[in-house]
Amino acid sequence: MIRFTHVYKEYPRSGLALKNVSFQIQKGEFAFLTGPSGAGKSTVLRLIHMADEPTDGEVRVLGLSSQTIRRRQIPELRRRVGMVFQDFRLLRDRTAADNIAFCLEVTSTRRSQIWPRVQRLLADVGLAAKAGAYPDELSGGEQQRVGIARALANNPVVLLADEPTGNLDERAARGVVELIRSIHATGMSVVMATHDLDLARRYPQYRVIALDEGALVSDTAQPETVRRDGV
């Protein structure tokens, strides 16, 4: 469903962010993407989201290839690949419900379906009571739940989470991870980037893909192919 084949990513000033990264993620999998800051985790997620192109190699997502995808196909892909961030990325001048409604509206959901769907999504992330609250009136954990509800708005098949607990205290972080786990339990594929190794160790049942300085250094799904050859 997601396949990286000898992927290199070079940024103009900072050099190689990814060096010969290959892996494959199946439908319904839960994979942690770990590694210290600067290892290339966010870059991997951005490539999956087709927010950037690899310098070399191929990224395939849901049957679309980074080498052949057209610009106008990207929005369609993103509706099927939800994404959440460490900094939530909510619109400050809209309520929780309006943030989700905005997403549905701009992805051409029929108007009559928007509000029932918003209610449903807020209930799913446990925020039914906070529909009318603005982001500044919500805790970090609650804001991230709005972010998750928005990511799920168009019934994606994959959820990408880039350090979703990075700005949260211990308790809120645990709540968000449990929420993401429950979403995974419904059949959703999840790729969660985190620099927090303890977090990944707490769930040994999930796959861990470890990066360091842009190279894939270990993958619990393929222990025999571990390599540090990098370039």
């Binding site: 106008r72 929005p75 892909l77 905005f102 997403c103 701009v106």
Partner: peptide, 17 residues
């Protein structure tokens, strides 16, 4: 710009943006 970034994030078509 924030709104535009969110629209692109959630998969709004360029034409609509």
């Amino acid at each position: 710009r924030d709104e535009i970034a969110i629209m692109q994030l959630v998969g709004a078509a360029d034409g609509l943006i």
